[in-house]
């Protein structure tokens, strides 16, 4: 890489071979400076917003799909080696279960933890509840509007479907109930060895206002497993429903700073090397940094979105 783009060759050549591109391409008609500034700022804002929206709706889906593939492989390996976690304190982000609804062709790997960052990769298991498949109530959070929209299919057509949950303890089957919204009566507590998974997400039925938390209760229909002791009894506020994770601020600041630096670098390089060559090198860096910044910004949004 450096051999091809290395500086040695660049400086060994006469400067005139790489003339400075001093003037910008002529515009149709020059406008006043104020108008230029306003217009350019608005355009930049539009590009940023468009990128962010694209990240939330499209690119995030790709990212989430990739993360699911990776988690699935990891969890499959752990199941085969019988090292999949079944209780105690599990590191956030580790896969803990695979939930699948065959009738919808839906399958998701559930990871441990419910902070906004963890939920980028798929549904997350709330850390102070029992694991899916174990007796008791387990809470699983997921996104329904962004980043692959993992819970969107269940919201629209999940009622009555059969769900299979594979964990390190075995396979458990559940039946999904209908969507429960604020004010609806709550089902009684599961007794004995019964298990319930409550899927928690934001109401994506109206795409423009996914602000209400809704619940789907999945009740066990077969055998369940005993929950080993030693669960957390408290979690960070950033892991509750609709919470944002502000711990990401330093990383975000660094990432945005890097983006700003690269932008300046691209502008300088463009004057020296011309448009085409600069973008050939700069675009991947800019895209990668923009992707990362947008991801980190998502941490600051409610986690069930």
């Amino acid at each position: 890489m450096t051999a091809v783009l290395g500086g040695r060759r660049r400086f060994s050549r006469p400067a005139r071979m790489w003339p400075l591109v001093t003037s910008a391409p002529p515009t149709a008609a020059p406008v006043s400076e104020t108008v230029s500034i306003v217009s350019t700022s608005l355009t930049v804002l539009a590009v940023v917003v468009a990128w962010f929206l694209a990240q939330l709706m499209l690119l995030g889906g790709i990212e989430q799909g990739r993360a699911q593939d990776r988690l699935y492989d990891q969890f499959r390996e752990q199941l085969a080696a019988a090292t999949a976690p079944v209780g105690g304190i599990i590191a956030p982000g580790a896969p803990v279960a695979v939930m699948s609804i065959p009738s919808l062709g839906w399958e998701q790997v559930v990871t441990e933890g419910t902070s906004a960052g963890t939920l980028l990769n798929g549904p997350g298991h709330r850390r102070d509840t029992v694991l899916p498949g174990q007796a008791g109530v387990s809470l699983v959070y997921g996104r329904s509007s962004t980043f692959g929209r993992p819970f969107a299919p269940i919201l629209s057509s999940g009622a009555g479907a059969k769900m299979t949950v594979v964990t390190g303890q075995g396979t458990a089957t559940y039946t999904l109930g209908s969507v429960r919204r604020a004010g609806d009566p709550m089902p009684p507590a599961p007794s004995g060895t019964a298990s319930r998974i409550t899927l928690v997400t934001s109401d994506g039925s109206s795409a423009l206002s996914p602000g209400d938390v809704v619940y789907i209760d999945a009740t066990s229909t077969g055998d369940t497993f005993v929950a080993p002791p030693g669960r957390l009894n408290a979690i960070a506020p950033s892991e509750t429903a609709m919470a944002a994770d502000r711990s990401v601020m330093p990383a975000l600041a660094l990432s945005l700073g890097a983006l700003a630096l690269v932008t300046v670098g691209v502008l300088v390089a463009r004057r020296r090397f011309g448009m085409a060559r600069t973008w050939l090198v700069g675009a991947p860096i800019v895209v990668a940094l923009a992707w990362m910044s947008a991801d980190l910004t998502t941490y600051l949004l409610p986690n069930l979105l």
Partner: peptide, 22 residues
């Protein structure tokens, strides 16, 4: 025993605001 209401203002307004801004 009724399900609690939990509404997030930012979540509600985020997408409309983003689209409008765009």
């Amino acid at each position: 025993v009724a399900t609690a209401s939990n509404t997030s203002g930012p979540a509600q307004s985020l997408l409309p605001v983003l689209v409008a801004l765009l």
